[in-house]
């Protein structure tokens, strides 16, 4: 991970958060935080509200109750474009690139808030971290493979050197090897460079491997949270997410 692509992280906190669509809460009573230089992950079964939670943090879904704070800024129900200005990079699970735009144009839109003179340098920095994208700058994003597309999605948010990276299932539909590389090399690397990462991940084992703290979401609420080491010893978590029995001491 190029050092130019990350900024010192900001503390992301959500307290008493309820959020959903048309006034109906999908997640409620959520208290989570992600600290600078760490990866906080959220795992949970399908339909537990993981994506809705992330969307509410970045202004895409309406917060019905509670507060979202990034650094010293209260950003509850702030418009997504204003949240982007605060240095928050969000990669959605699906529709994570602009298919009709070329790879270069996707990166340029990623750097939309940069002064024009800085865009080219930022593209160079992204290409240094994702060298595979170099040879496909003129290709339309819609023509990329799943792995290439995800790298472009990551590259797009890194254009602004975000201090907080919010990622919704970045490894969905990726080959295991590519998924491992993305998680362990890029996402962990981003946190190691000092930034804050909040990650929703289906692969619980892989999430635990790179996380400093993990939340378990079930039925729209946090049902469990802890350091990966503690969760790996929790029988309920092991049975539900790691497919086996907890190690005996």
């Amino acid at each position: 991970m190029s050092a130019e692509l990350s900024k010192p992280g900001q503390h992301l906190v959500a307290t008493g958060l309820s959020a959903g669509y048309d006034g109906r809460a999908i997640v409620s009573g959520i208290d989570i935080e992600a600290l600078p230089g760490t990866v906080a992950s959220i795992v949970g079964p399908n339909g537990s509200g993981k994506s809705t939670l992330l969307k509410s943090l970045v202004g895409v879904v309406k917060v019905l109750e509670g507060q979202v704070k990034i650094g010293d800024n209260v950003v509850t129900n702030t418009a997504p474009e204003e949240i982007a200005k605060l240095g928050i990079g969000y990669v959605p699970q699906i529709d994570d690139v602009f298919p009709p735009l070329s790879v270069r144009e996707n990166l340029e839109i990623g750097g939309y808030l940069l002064p024009r003179r800085d865009v080219e340098a930022s593209i160079e920095a992204v290409l240094e971290s994702f060298p595979r994208l170099k040879s496909m700058l003129t290709r339309k994003a819609g023509k990329l493979s799943g792995g290439e597309r995800k790298m472009l999605a990551m590259g797009r948010v890194l254009m602004l050197s975000p201090s907080v990276l919010v990622l919704d299932e970045p490894t969905a539909n990726l080959a295991p090897l590519v998924a491992t590389q993305l998680l362990e090399e890029y996402i962990r690397g981003f946190a190691d460079a000092g930034s804050t990462v909040l990650l929703v991940e289906q692969r619980a084992k892989a999430a635990l491997r790179i996380s400093n703290w993990t939340y378990v979401l079930g039925g729209g609420r946090i049902v469990l949270s802890g350091a990966p080491k503690d969760l790996e010893e929790n029988p309920l978590f092991v049975e539900s997410f790691l497919g086996g029995a907890a190690p005996t001491k």
Partner: peptide, 15 residues
Amino acid sequence: RATSANPNLARNSGV
């Protein structure tokens, strides 16, 4: 073009 392709993502990019 970005707004046409994906308005939510465009907003998340600061557009």
